[in-house]
Design a protein around this nucleic acid. Structure first.
Length: 423
RNA sequence: GGAGAGGUGGCAGAGCUGGUUGAAUGCGGCGGUCUCGAAAACCGUUGUGCCCUUUCGCGGGGCACCGAGGGUUCGAAUCCCUCCCUCUCCGCCA
């Protein structure tokens, strides 16, 4: 959520930066409603002050046995007026909220301009895509032949885009999760969490998942105000909702493995085969709560922490900075990590690392009190995948495949797999 | 799922026969006295949000907040309703 005071004090600056995302800010409407709101507040508060004062007089009068019925009658009218003003005010604030909640985070200055992913900026590449002297097989073919990925039975149990992993496949999934968590907790300083997998609408609202368009992406329970977790960002970032942190606690770095669920509405026909786009997928998430002045540097660190996973697995990847048109709603700056996938003959997103500045913290009301005293300040929040497990699974199967259809287990995973070959 | 108890300031804990209670008291925190310094003791201070005002420097005034949302009332932490959460006992269960 944007800072309303900023929208009021520097509207043109915000309008310009949101135009970079192709968003038209209904500024006139906002300014008009905002002025009306303050007008109503002034009158309502004057009336309330009057009522408080006269109510004290009534109390005093009753104590000394005087008649106060005139004042009581008078305050009855004032009370009705207050009720009317409060109703008006609530309606106006609803309208204002509707405007402000639909406004995305203005991009940081160094975010490249652009309409879609074709205009993202390449930051760096790591590793060389392997050259095959035969036609490499896609992971879904290899997985089916090795009998470690069974999409038909996954669909039988649930529906399409759900997958059954078997034997070494199931173990590879588990190995990846353990490997990711161990790396981040033991070497990168993150604290491991395991949050609830169902989240309520307050939590969804807080991290910005419930905007008008995202709504249909989520699985919602019919009988409860709960959703299946769409990304661990939601339950993890919400752990400190409505809290005041101590400055000494910051930065807080947490990591969590969590199954994630998305309806993939509107994705029909895209990535239909294999593990790339599933309704249920595993993910290890990295989340940081930091002081505002450090969030820029922390995004670089968090991105490096995610990249390290791919380096240890020796999977070729590249890092791109998302352009303004590709940026998520709540993010002010995002790096995507893209892993090389032979079946796509291209790089494919495997992690997304974002700096939300105070956008989420403001909506979630996560603040900290500076050790030197003074006003509480909003923290900055960041998060990134470290990594998406299913896509890593696919990348390993494809990049480490052998001509006869077996898969060599990456060095870093052999300890977890208890094997150096899937065959 | 059934029965009961409860949710108050950073924490602990009063108030809950409606009216100087934004809230006693204790602890913690901050400032001061004392001390070479510290502890102890004593004195003072101590929430958040919003609105108005401001010589924009700290400031001044007002409104709201005692789990959340409604209601009754001139007036509610205190009464009523709904919801959420916590605890105890029973049942059930991994």
């Amino acid at each position: 959520m944007l800072d309303i005071k900023r929208l009021r004090s520097e509207p043109d600056e915000i309008r310009r930066s949101l135009e970079r995302r192709g968003i038209e800010v209904p500024l006139d409407e906002f300014i008009e409603l905002d002025a009306k709101r303050r007008e109503l507040i002034v009158e309502a508060e004057e009336k309330k002050a009057l009522r408080n004062r006269v109510s004290d007089e009534i109390a005093a009068a009753k104590r000394s046995g005087e008649d106060a019925s005139g004042k009581i009658q008078e305050m009855k009218k004032v009370g009705e007026r207050i009720k009317a003003l409060d109703t008006l005010l609530r309606d106006i604030e609803r309208e204002l909220d509707a405007i402000v909640l639909e406004l995305p985070n203005p991009p940081l200055a160094d975010v490249p301009d652009g309409c879609d992913e074709t205009e993202n900026r390449l930051i760096r590449t790591w590793g060389e895509p392997r050259r095959f002297d035969y036609e490499p097989r896609p992971h879904w073919e290899l997985g089916a032949r090795l009998d470690i990925i069974d999409q038909e039975r996954g669909a039988k149990v649930a529906e399409s885009r759900f997958t059954l992993l078997k034997g070494p496949g199931a173990r590879l999934e588990r190995s990846l999760i353990s490997f990711f968590l161990n790396l981040h907790t033991q070497e990168h300083g993150y604290t491991e969490l395991f949050p609830p997998i169902l989240v309520n609408s307050d939590s969804m609202q807080g991290t910005g998942q419930l905007s008008k368009f995202a709504h249909q992406e989520m699985y919602r329970l019919r009988d409860d105000d709960l959703y299946l977790n769409p990304t661990a960002e939601v339950p993890v970032t919400n752990i400190y909702r409505d809290e005041m942190l101590a400055e000494e606690e910051l930065p807080i770095s947490v990591t969590a493995y969590l199954p994630s669920f998305r309806r993939e509405a509107g994705a029909a026909g895209r990535d239909t085969r294999g593990l790339i786009r599933q309704h249920q997928f595993n993910k290890v998430e990295l989340v940081k709560f930091v002081k505002p002045e450090n969030s820029g540097a922390e995004l670089e660190r968090l991105t490096a922490d995610a990249e390290e996973v791919l380096k240890r697995l020796e999977l070729p990847f590249r890092t791109v900075a998302l352009c303004t048109g590709d940026l998520g709603f709540a993010s002010a700056k995002t790096y995507d990590l893209e892993v090389w996938l032979p079946s796509y003959n291209d790089y494919k997103e495997i992690s997304s690392c974002s700096n939300f500045l105070d956008f989420q913290a403001r909506r979630l009301s996560i603040r900290y009190r500076p050790a030197s005293g003074g006003r509480p300040r909003f923290v900055h929040t960041l998060n990134g995948s470290g990594l998406a497990v299913g896509r890593t699974f696919a990348a390993i199967i494809e990049n480490y495949q052998n001509e006869e259809g077996t898969v060599t287990v990456p060095e870093a995973l052999r300890h977890y797999m208890g094997a150096d070959m899937i065959e």
